[in-house]
């Protein structure tokens, strides 16, 4: 159990509470947690995929306006729900796990809560990517190559489909439009 793994779980809570902004930090800490535990070839590729999943969505979304879907009345509730789920998960799994902190599982739980309880499209996308990062982390910690492959593939598919969806749904930002016009004039 490393502090990076614990921090990654807490940053996943940040994604549930605040949205996309925490995703790059989550990717970074996730990569550090992978590098700190596991065997070399898997950890390095895992860290690379985690960084990609963390940073790419922010770059894609910087071309579009913010998703302004209003949230419900109890906006603080989902983060507490996710934290409570993590605690329950640990309570249930403490005797089975043999002394390991199931950080990946906690991140997956937080991502699922984000998908289920948030209304904004971008927020749900962030939740799905969080899930993918959690799967990657647990696969790297357990040294499961098949699970890692499936998690990485799923994460990349979610990344690409989410980017396409954002392109269809979200209005472009004024600055990006201006640059495009100038390019067309030239």
């Amino acid at each position: 159990m490393t502090l990076a793994a614990v921090l990654a779980a807490l940053l996943a809570l940040g994604v549930v509470a605040r949205g996309m902004g925490f995703l790059p930090v989550l990717g970074l800490v996730d990569a550090v947690a992978m590098l700190a535990s596991g065997t070399p070839p898997l950890t390095q590729s895992g860290a690379g995929v985690a960084l990609l999943l963390g940073i790419a969505p922010g770059l894609v979304l910087s071309r579009y306006q913010a998703d302004a879907t209003p949230e419900g009345q109890q906006a603080a509730l989902p983060s507490f729900l996710a934290l409570a789920l993590m605690v329950l998960l640990l309570l249930a799994g403490s005797r089975v796990q043999g002394g390991q902190f199931p950080a990946g599982l906690c991140i997956v739980a937080a991502g699922l809560v984000s998908v289920a309880c948030r209304r904004g499209m971008v927020w749900q996308w962030a939740g799905l990517l969080t899930c993918a990062q959690g799967v990657l982390l647990s696969a790297v910690m357990a040294g499961q190559v098949m699970a890692f492959g499936a998690g990485a593939l799923g994460g990349l598919v979610v990344l690409v489909l989410g980017a396409l969806c954002a392109q269809r749904v979200l209005p472009r930002r004024a600055r990006a439009l201006k640059g495009e016009k100038r390019r067309n004039e030239v």
Partner: peptide, 9 residues
């Protein structure tokens, strides 16, 4: 508390 409890199983 839960994490220390899990670690000291």
């Amino acid at each position: 508390w839960q994490m220390t409890w899990a670690a000291s199983s």
